[in-house]
């Protein structure tokens, strides 16, 4: 078990990785990545049980599926610093001949990734399938997934949400990155989704909210609570309230940095707000 300080150090370093990755190639998605940094660090270092090494079937360990694949920078940084591949490889993000594609894929054989994502709305179905395979294999480990809130505008999610409840897929914890932002603006302006908690509950899910989704302790506590609710006949949904762009003051509370990289000066400011803790890659 890592100490809270070690995890806080990882959060700071991950934010630096995210900023440096997208800055180098002048593309990528820092906003959602920064908003989910605490979640990823908590998930991979406190919440999930994972085996050493990587195999696709993942029998005997918890699995994670990233549905909103555009936040690949935070995913790659956390996977690398967890030991799935060398941190130096973060230098190849979005470059030609890289395993670190703009959106995550199994196609280039990157350890830690079990499905391609990027075209939105597909990850929950995949996570359900993996959860069903775990039940068939009598593997009691859990399946986790992460989805953008805007991503829930894709209809396939609601097919999946209906299926998971109707078929008691209770070894699944699907987290929604609830930051209220999408490319064209606030989700409430682009396409209001109403009361997401009520919607998931109406479909038959057990829903809990983590109000402080950028507070590491709150995230760990909330996800532990989510774990305790599995195995009770309902899939579990976590509404994770986050701030897009968290940790870099000028990127926060706006959709402007959804898919835009900082320039040299902006990078310097961002890095100055996030101290180097574990060594830059």
């Amino acid at each position: 078990m890592a100490t809270l300080q070690q995890l806080e150090d990882l959060v700071l370093q991950t934010r630096r990785d995210i900023l440096r990755m997208v800055h180098k190639v002048n593309s990528g998605h820092p906003g959602g990545s920064l908003g989910c940094t605490e979640f990823f660090v908590a998930l991979y270092h406190e919440i999930m049980h994972t085996k050493d090494g990587f195999d696709m079937d993942g029998i005997g360990e918890d699995l994670f599926f990233l549905s909103n694949g555009h936040i690949s920078p935070v995913y790659y940084s956390v996977l690398a610093r967890k030991g799935y591949f060398p941190t130096e490889e973060l230098n190849t993000f979005r470059l030609i001949n890289s395993r670190l594609q703009g959106h995550p894929t199994t196609h280039e054989g990157l350890p830690g990734v079990r499905i391609a994502s990027g075209s939105l709305g597909q990850g929950m179905s995949v996570a359900i399938g993996a959860a069903l395979a775990k039940k068939l294999n009598k593997d009691e480990h859990l399946v986790y997934s992460l989805h953008g809130d805007g991503e829930l505008q894709e209809g396939q999610n609601w097919e999946a949400i209906m299926y998971a409840a109707g078929n008691k897929v209770d070894n699944l914890i699907s987290t929604i990155d609830f930051n209220g932002q999408q490319i064209d603006g606030a989700t409430d302006d682009v396409l209001p989704m109403g009361d997401l908690k009520a919607k998931f509950e109406a479909f038959g899910w057990d829903v809990l909210e983590i109000e402080k989704g950028n507070d590491l302790e709150a995230v760990i506590k909330g996800m532990d609570e989510a774990k305790s609710r599995t195995g009770k006949g309902k899939p579990v949904c976590v509404l994770l309230h986050t701030i897009m762009g968290n940790g870099v003051d000028f990127m926060m509370h706006t959709h402007a940095w959804h898919g835009k990289a900082p320039n040299d000066e902006q990078l310097a400011v961002g890095l100055s707000q996030n101290a180097e803790t574990l060594g830059d890659y």
């Binding site: 597909q122 399938g129 395979a133 775990k134 068939l136």
Partner: peptide, 18 residues
């Protein structure tokens, strides 16, 4: 059910686990 997109995704997920 009548939800083919979900079916394709679930099928993809079921392969993970053999």
């Amino acid at each position: 059910g009548i939800a083919e997109a979900n079916m394709m995704g679930i099928a993809a997920g079921l392969t993970i686990g053999g």
